[in-house]
């Protein structure tokens, strides 16, 4: 028996595809934002409303990720922008490789400024995979509970923005926005927080300004405080 030293990333192939996606987007002058949140957090509803409010500037395309069905893609298509649906089958997250094929499709013969990727509804796995995006944007709906930020720290630490959704329902829940924001700030000092209701159409102006604003502001190089004995969430 002998030992071979490897010291290589297990997902080196995925990373290469993520780099390729970045190269493709840069060559076309487009940005890519990835929406990550639980099933039912309101990712598609936020996209529908965002597309409506953007009114074609910037020019938007969407990649939809779900285990099954093209239902979300149909909703986005009705909103009037090009969309590619990826069905992951049993996969709990999108891969950079799958997104590459969808991107090539989406950008073929079309000029787009901004690509939204709606990942599979899941607060754990999508956080660990680089798709080549410019920013991961985390969503939490007020019907989910304000403890989700603390429970799934990886996503919220990496997010370039947090969007609290379904705020019109706040009077009917025990969700405390201040507690969610406090938990978020422990993990992430630099990224903005938005509170919106996509169906009622409220609170969306700052979000739209952020989306229009080009590359999202980099977080300051301040280090977040270390959490004692913390490990990430286990399992998937």
């Amino acid at each position: 028996m002998r030992k071979i030293t490897v010291m290589e990333r297990v997902l080196a192939a995925d990373d290469a595809w993520a780099r390729e996606n970045r190269r493709l987007l840069a060559a076309r002058g487009a940005r890519m934002y990835e929406l990550v949140g639980s099933p039912g957090a309101g990712k598609t509803a936020l996209l529908e409303r965002t597309i409506l409010l953007l009114g074609g500037r910037p020019r938007v395309g969407v990649i939809e990720g779900d285990l099954a069905t093209a239902r979300d893609a149909e909703r986005i298509r009705r909103a009037g922008v090009p969309v590619v649906q990826i069905n992951t089958g049993s996969g709990c997250h999108l891969s950079a490789h799958a997104v590459h094929a969808a991107l090539a499709d989406l950008l073929s013969g079309r000029r787009l400024d901004l690509v939204f990727v709606e990942n599979v509804g899941n607060l754990v796995c999508p956080a660990a995979f680089d798709l080549g995006e410019d920013a991961k944007i985390a969503l939490v709906s007020v019907t989910e509970g304000d403890d989700k930020v603390e429970k799934y720290p990886l996503l919220f630490a990496r997010a370039r923005a947090l969007v609290l959704t379904k705020t019109a329902l706040l009077p009917h829940t025990d969700f405390r926005p201040a507690a969610a924001v406090r938990a978020f700030r422990k993990l992430n000092r630099g990224s903005p927080v938005f509170a919106v209701d996509s169906l009622a159409g409220s609170g969306l102006d700052p979000w739209i300004a952020f989306v229009r604003g080009g590359r999202p502001a980099r977080g300051k190089a301040r280090r977040p405080p270390r959490r004692s004995g913390a490990a990430g969430p286990r399992g998937s």
Binding site: R9, L11, D15, A18, R19, R22, D130, G132, D134, A135, A157, R158, R160, L187, N188, G190, S191, P216, R218, G219, K220, A221, R222, R223, P224, R226, R227, A230, A231, G232
Partner: peptide, 13 residues
């Protein structure tokens, strides 16, 4: 020991 969070490093794993 958790290393410092990436704070949104573009691209780099």
């Amino acid at each position: 020991e958790p290393p410092p969070m990436p704070g949104g490093g573009e691209g780099a794993p």
